[in-house]
Design a protein around this nucleic acid. Structure first.
Lengths: 298, 298
DNA sequence: TCATATCTATAGATTTTATCTATGCCAAAT
DNA sequence: ATTTGGCATAGATAAAATCTATAGATATGA
């Protein structure tokens, strides 16, 4: 017995015709006929008197139909519920974001999300990648936004966007570009230890930590703003993610430099460990953020 | 979505384990796992958090499970109903029986059926084969008992039993048997026109109506009892169905004759045109009658 | 009553689906 | 660190639903 068969007999009962019922159910008359017969055989009850005109429901069939109605109604209710659940974006969601991403995307997405989903209570926690992974595993956070790839294979990540890293600094004689190779000879200001962007840049640019820092200066910054001030003062360089760059004032944009050979970039992804309870919300956040950021990057 | 899948998730929710649920549902863990996954994909809702220990039902999953419970419960109710319906032998059933069968089997079956099925209201109508077929077609009767084969292909018949036809008559010198060939030379007393047994005997014994009857006697009987009296008086012969013979007194049983070559017999079948409304009852009657008669014939 | 039209049942082929066995993978526990 | 228990996946197989085409049966109209 299956739900389709029950729908078929309900349709036959309604239309008093196998052919019309078949149309209604979007199957051929042959299929419906065979399925009704099969159900009757399984229940060992003849539901319809096909010799009557129009087709009549037998006394026993009537009892079965009443029950079939119940089953089908509840099955439809279940399907309706599942759709409703997928529409419902509400409740508390704890989201961790690493600082170098938070500073650029929070201004972009928060207003939009809060207005579009008034019932969604989005709690933002700014944490490092390591802490984020830990909190996700422990269930302290529901979802995170960080830079991929990450080592943790037990977390699932979905790419949100790829963001260029832009070079900021002062070159002599109004030069506006430099080569990747030259970069490693420059004085590069980086974020403090613990920021994954720091490690990524070191790796991407093949920097040796000791060489890249001014020997008489050990200050490392916690924010891009401080980095910019250091660069403006000491004439070094730094690398900034594209979304942050778009917020700079015109004067500072003058000091953006192009790389002669290729680009540097980082991936930004949404990730979760237990997607399950709030999966639909997480997925919705993913699509919304992707869309918003795409608009800003293009 | 199907009912099995819903049963699977109910079992997982109950046992908090895919393996145990699979055992409970009598499928392998792989099957259950795949089906749960499939349902989750179809509903686009993750029902279980497999990373929790023990496995947890998600918030959304809980809503689905409540509905699934409803569906499965009603489906089971339907199956239970169908079984109950098949057990229930009650209500009014109009049964037609041709006279030559009625006289022998009604005494055998009526008491038994009335006692075993107190809620069954069995109305017996003694009618000829032609009338029986007509009444079945018109819905005036629900079921008939007659001798097969019959010409009407639109009626369905199920064999109840095969009944020997026994030869009754007086032979000279205490002879107890005669050949089939000799039979057609004898004076045979038959039932009136309209009784199908009459026609069957004429056909079986290859009798020509005119030859077989005493030329100065045109009385044809309506009952076996009259036939017997005619035979006893005029020294002819007649053929009686086995079940009727078993009711004869000892003296008359002395006049039963054996056929030297082979036997004569007739089929007795139950038949119906619209089995549908009372199918279960008809089928039950069939099995009961077959069994009772079998006991009496053996 | 005969032909026609309508409707259901059946046959055979095809596609989909459920299920199984075997195995991989992960996490918890020893 | 290795083992154990449990869920997921792959590939093969079996079962079932569905389709097209056609037969058979019933009702309708000339």
């Amino acid at each position: 017995m299956n739900i389709h068969q029950l729908e078929y007999i309900l349709a036959v009962d309604q239309f008093k015709s196998f052919s019309k019922a078949a149309d209604y159910c979007h199957v051929t008359q042959a299929t419906l006929s065979a399925m009704v017969k099969k159900l009757e055989e399984q229940l060992d009850i003849v539901i319809f008197d096909r010799k009557a005109n129009p087709i009549a429901t037998t006394e026993n069939g009537r009892e079965i139909l009443v029950q079939a109605q119940q089953v089908v109604a509840h099955a439809n209710a279940l399907l309706a519920s599942s759709k409703a659940i997928n529409q419902k974006i509400e409740g508390r969601v704890k989201m961790g974001i690493i600082p170098t991403i938070a500073s650029s995307i929070l201004p972009l997405i928060m207003k939009f999300l809060v207005e579009k989903y008034p019932l969604l209570n989005l709690e933002i926690h700014e944490v490092t990648t390591n802490q984020l992974v830990k909190d996700l595993r422990e269930g302290k956070l529901d979802v995170g936004i960080l830079s991929t790839p990450i080592a943790a294979t037990d977390l699932e990540t979905e790419l949100l966007y790829v963001e260029d890293l832009r070079l900021y600094g002062h070159l002599a004689a109004g030069e506006k570009k430099m080569s990747k190779a030259a970069l490693s000879q420059q004085r590069i200001f980086l974020l403090q230890e613990g920021h994954c962007l720091r490690d990524q840049i070191i790796q991407l640019c093949d920097l040796k930590k000791n060489k890249s820092l001014p020997s008489n200066l050990s200050v490392e910054s916690n924010t891009f703003d401080t980095l910019l001030n250091l660069v403006d003062t000491f004439q070094g360089m730094t690398l900034l993610p594209a979304l942050y760059v778009s917020q700079l004032n015109e004067e500072r944009k003058q000091h953006l430099l192009a790389l002669e050979d290729g680009t540097l970039s980082r991936e930004v992804s949404i990730c979760y460990y237990r997607p399950y309870a709030k999966w639909n919300i997480i997925r919705r956040l993913q699509t919304e953020i992707t869309e918003i950021v795409q608009r800003h990057l293009s």
